[in-house]
Simulated assay, not measured.
Amino acid sequence: MLTSLAYIFLIGILVGSIFNKFRLPRLLGMILTGIIIGPYVFNILDGSILAISTDLRKLALIIILTRAGLALDFGDLKKVGRAAILMCFLPACFEILAMVMIAPKLLGISTLDAAIMGAVVAAVSPAVIVPRMLNLIEKKCGTDKSIPQLIMAGASVDDVFVIVLFTSFIGLAQGQKMSAMSFAQIPVSIIIGILAGIVLGGCLVLFFKRININDTMKVIILLSVSFLLVALEDKLKGIVPISGLIAIMSIGVALQKRDSKLAKSISIKFSELWIGAEVVLFVLVGATVDINYAISAGSAAVILIFIVLIFRMIGVYCCLIKSDLSIKERIFCMIAYTPKATVQAAIGAIPLSMGLPCGKIVLTVAVLSILVTAPLGAFFIDITYKKLLQ
């Protein structure tokens, strides 16, 4: 395992740096590193590290969502208002609807299989989006209209919404009935997650004020609480719906609201942690990519991804119709809401592992969506923000 970790860091950083010199997103180099050293090409990664890759990817996601929460001020989101709520679910609905309409004709699958595929593909990637939005906040690009905050918050809730839909569609494929209760879990899990995060964040602020410890210890405590929240979500599944990831982000928001100086010092530490977590996340995402699956899907799957992506961008535009954003700013939001990576890597293989007939094609399209949208989305965010944002 130690040798594999060395390969992940050294080769991932090297290839990422080479891509960065050519003005290409570093994450593209890291994903390609994962593909090359992963089990489907040279297979030099130890099986033990692949066995825990899901947990390592989740660890990286926890780090980036906590960092996002520490930088997110919900007061800023009030400026955007209605659009902030719509961005949490409307673009994903547009994308899933497009998949249900088009995938059966292009790929010859059933409507239910297309819905499962749509739920896998529809989630945006906080791991791609959040670091770039934090960078915009630091540079004060688009912050006068809270554009980076809008995209960060929407992307986080969007993932929760899509994962609940995915679970419901999988249940249907296994012969279960879809009930109104399963859809009611979406807002309930989000609300409980927010409340839990706010309460825990407030408690942590009081604890850190009374107990004199350094910032590194505070980060360790905060990470430990985040791990427990994710574990709690799994334990309470089917009993009490709670979104652990939303709770984690809400802790950061609560810390920022209660003590901005404390939040800033902790955020700096999390920024340093993200340097390593980013490499692990995207190299391991690349390692999940079966290049043979990707090639076998052919051009039809790639065309499908671009079509549903257009529908997603239309959904984003509809969210912003009554906002005070200019046309350029709306175009930027449409571009920034396209990258996929984390959720697709996490759930793309589930239908296949459950033995569903659509498993192979769902995984293929999930993999291709990562390969197409993660680098393109990151690249266009990086090259357009100066032209499109104030």
Rank of each mutant, 00 (worst) to 15 (best):
M1E: 13
S4H: 05
L5E: 01
I11W: 11
G12S: 10
I13Y: 12
L14T: 14
I31L: 09
L32P: 07
G34E: 08
Y40M: 03
D46C: 06
G47M: 13
A51M: 12
A51P: 01
I64W: 11
L77G: 13
L77H: 11
R82I: 03
A84W: 02
L86A: 15
P91N: 06
A92L: 03
I96V: 14
M99R: 00
M101A: 13
I102L: 06
I109D: 09
A114P: 10
A115V: 04
M117H: 03
M117A: 13
A123I: 06
A123G: 06
L134N: 06
E138C: 02
C141G: 15
G142V: 15
G142S: 12
D144W: 03
K145S: 13
K145A: 10
P148S: 15
P148N: 15
Q149W: 11
A153M: 08
G154W: 00
D158T: 05
D159Y: 05
V160Q: 04
F161G: 04
F161L: 05
F161V: 12
V162R: 05
V164N: 13
V164G: 00
L165A: 03
S168G: 10
I170D: 09
Q176G: 11
M178G: 06
F183V: 08
Q185A: 10
I186W: 01
G193R: 00
I198H: 05
C203K: 12
F207L: 10
F207D: 05
F208H: 01
R210E: 04
M217K: 03
K218Q: 14
K218P: 00
I220D: 02
I221P: 02
I221N: 01
F227N: 08
K235F: 03
L236R: 04
K237W: 06
I239N: 05
V240N: 07
P241S: 04
G244K: 02
I251Q: 02
A254E: 11
L255S: 04
D259Q: 11
K264A: 13
E272C: 07
G276M: 09
E278I: 02
V279Q: 12
V279P: 09
V280R: 09
L281N: 10
F282M: 05
V285L: 09
G286M: 13
A287D: 15
V289M: 15
D290S: 15
I291H: 08
Y293V: 07
A294E: 13
I295Q: 10
I295R: 10
G298V: 01
I307M: 08
L309E: 10
L309W: 04
I310T: 08
M313G: 13
V316P: 14
V316M: 14
I321Q: 02
D324Y: 02
S326E: 07
E329Y: 14
A345V: 06
G348T: 05
L352R: 10
C358L: 08
K360R: 13
K360I: 15
I370S: 05
T373W: 04
A374P: 06
L376R: 02
F380H: 11
I381P: 12
K387M: 08
L389Y: 13
